[in-house]
Amino acid sequence: MAEGIDVYKRRYGQNPKSLWRDLKGTVEPFYVTLRNMFKKPVTYQYPEEKRTPYPRYRARIVLTRDPEGGERCVACYLCSAACPVDCISMQSSEDENGRRYAAWFRINFSRCIYCGLCAEACPTLAIQMTPFYEFSGRDPLKMVYEKEDLLIADGGKDNEYNFYKHAGIGVANPRGGNEDEYGPVDVRSNLP
C-alpha cells in the first residue's frame, strides 16, 4: 500500500493539477456523449431518403465522346493498367482514318471498386466517373458492361477537349494541321 501511495506521489506529487485534469478527463466525456445523444443523427435513411452526391462523386463509369461526337477512348490500356482489381479489359484497333479505338471495351462492375484510378489515368478524358451510384445486380454477368453500354453521347466533365487535336498524328485534322503545329516538312525543299 505504501508503494501504491508512492505511485500516486510520483504521478501527482509534482503537479497537483494533474489529478484534477485526470478526474475532469474522466467525467467530462460523459457529458459529451450525453449531449450527443440528443442531437439529430447524421444518418440518411437510404431507400426513403436519397442524398445528392457531388458532381465529382465516384460511381458508375462511362465512356465519353469528343465535341465532334467521336469516341474519345483510344484504347491505350492505361486504365486497365491502373486498375487495381483488373476489372477493365479491351482490345485496341485502328479504323480506316488511322484513329485508334477500342474494338471492344469491357468493365466488370462486379469487380470494380470505384477507386477512380482509371479516370485519373485516362489521357484523353474518355473514361469518367459519374455520380450515379444506385447500381447493383444479382447476376455477375449482367454487371459486365461492354463498350456499347458504357458509351454516352456527351463529353462529360470537359466537353471541349479533343485529344486528336493535340496529338499531332493527323487524325482529327490533317497532319500538321493542329493549331500548335507547323505544316509537314518537305525534305526536298530548296530552302536550307
Binding site: 456523449t33 450527443n36 445523444m37 442531437k39 439529430k40 443523427p41 447524421v42 444518418t43 435513411q45
Partner: peptide
C-alpha cells in the same frame, strides 16, 4: 440504439 445515438446514428 443508445450507442447509435451517442455516435449520432439511429
Amino acid at each position: 440504439r443508445v450507442l447509435g445515438r451517442i455516435q449520432r446514428r439511429y
